[in-house]
């Protein structure tokens, strides 16, 4: 990656990264959220850009270590917006982003705690009137207020998009992995705390939340009038073939058959 080639491009670029406290999927410990950390990594690789971290939540000490691990990635401070417990963070984020006026806002696709609906970037975009792009894999270039980015699609595909700044972008899990968090900088980093009026999320208070139940496995239902078909479906081995078998063929004939299948499936480019 030509880091130094980029440095002049992004000078004066203001990037805000919205970070949240994640939850380790196995140990359930608070950690830096994976996609948010990737967003921070992406912002840091835009060399020359000024990166600010924004976090809005209840001020509690349990999550301090998790937030500090973002600081350990090489950032001086986190802008911490204090909110009451059970508050909707979107209005507070809108106010602070208006004040900050960044050109680019990066964040993870969805949070690892709470509702985790992935709606925050869309709500912010609607409130601020900025375009939003989802599932970023890389930022290719930022020139004259237009960002060229790669969007991650399923099956490892990528789509190139151009978007006019200021914009909000969510970062996909296929973006480059976040760098390690260093202990010393994490301890030295500071929280720039300020309070903001909390808007309570009343709807959420009505919901019942419980640990995830295992989803019932779908049964294979065979709807057939004939008993023989039903029996065959129930007794048949799942992996009984029915495939085509070519033996005693020359390699060329075999290759031709495989080629025909690959072409029919459309995997040959």
């Amino acid at each position: 990656m030509p880091h130094n080639a980029k440095s002049s491009d992004n000078a004066g670029l203001n990037v805000a990264v919205l970070v949240s406290v994640g939850r380790h999927p196995l140990t359930a410990r608070a950690r830096r959220a994976d996609q948010d950390a990737r967003a921070v990594e992406m912002a840091l690789t835009l060399s020359g850009a000024a990166v600010r971290l924004v976090h809005a939540s209840v001020d509690d000490s349990d999550n301090e270590a998790a937030l500090r691990s973002y600081l350990g990635m090489g950032i001086g401070e986190v802008n911490l917006i204090k909110q009451a417990s059970g508050a909707d963070v979107v209005p507070a984020l809108v106010t602070s982003l208006r004040d900050m006026a960044p050109q680019l806002v990066l964040t993870g696709t969805r949070a690892e705690t709470g509702e985790g609906s992935g709606l925050v970037p869309y709500l912010l975009s609607e409130a601020l009137g900025w375009p939003v792009i989802s599932g970023l894999a890389a930022v290719e270039s930022i020139e004259q207020g237009v960002a060229t980015v790669l969007q991650a699609l399923p099956r490892g595909k990528r789509r190139r998009l151009r978007v006019r700044l200021p914009a909000i972008a969510t970062v996909d899990s296929s973006a480059p992995a976040a760098r390690q968090s260093a202990f010393g900088p994490a301890r030295r980093g500071e929280f720039d705390t300020y309070a903001c009026a909390s808007v309570m999320d009343e709807l959420q208070a009505k919901w019942q939340v419980q640990p995830a139940r295992k989803r019932p496995k779908r049964l294979k239902i065979v709807k057939s009038s004939s008993a023989r078909d039903r029996f065959k479906a129930a007794a048949a081995k799942a992996e009984s073939g029915g495939g085509q078998l070519l033996s005693d063929v020359s390699p060329e004939q075999g290759a031709e058959a495989i080629f025909a299948l690959l072409k029919e499936e459309g995997v040959l480019r």
């Binding site: 999927p25 969805r110 949070a111 709470g114 509702e115 019942q208 939340v209 419980q210 640990p211 995830a212």
Partner: peptide, 12 residues
């Protein structure tokens, strides 16, 4: 599903 698939939210 909520919270990265670790919780179930029941709502209207």
């Amino acid at each position: 599903r909520g919270a990265a698939g670790t919780s179930d939210i029941t709502r209207a």
